[in-house]
């Protein structure tokens, strides 16, 4: 499933970029994130309790940040699984100035597998977009709070 989106972050491109690749910020802003620990070069072990509506599950896995080109772009790979299935998402995040703010555009692919794939397909696109919306929304809030 393709996933694209645009979000605005209330900070300069440099500041936004810093926030986006800061594991502590990510840990706070990623919806349902219980744990985010650095494992190796750009790879973070992650645990999340995520869900949409009544569907809720605990997932573990990793987030990988790579191809980091400050302050313009980086690649993010999320690979998590739990008893309700697995999610693997990868995408390129690009930043561009938008007045005093930063516009983030996101383009990637999401694979959803296991039990949640078979029964919840009408929610997949919406859920993936909601979660990116929540993530970037929270980072935006951080940016504005710290500005």
């Amino acid at each position: 499933m393709k996933l694209t989106g645009k979000h605005t972050i209330g900070a300069t491109v440099e500041r936004a970029f810093e926030l986006l690749i800061d594991p502590e910020v990510l840990a706070r802003c990623m919806p349902g994130c219980d744990k985010l620990e650095h494992r190796a070069d750009g790879v973070y072990d992650m645990a999340v309790s995520a869900g949409i509506g009544p569907v809720r599950g605990k997932y573990t896995g990793s987030v990988t940040l790579s191809d980091i080109q400050p302050p313009e772009r980086y690649t993010m790979v999320v690979d998590i699984k739990g008893t309700t299935g697995f999610v693997k998402g990868q995408g390129v995040v690009e930043l561009a100035p938008e007045g005093e703010n930063t516009q983030i555009s996101f383009e990637g692919d999401v694979q959803i597998g296991g039990p949640i794939a078979a029964v919840g397909q009408r929610m997949h696109a919406g859920a993936a977009r909601l979660m990116t919306r929540q993530l970037f929304g929270a980072i935006d809030a951080e940016a504005r709070a710290s500005a």
Partner: peptide
Amino acid sequence: SGQMITGSFMD
């Protein structure tokens, strides 16, 4: 990715 997305009477 080979997931069956019509795997119940919901779909």
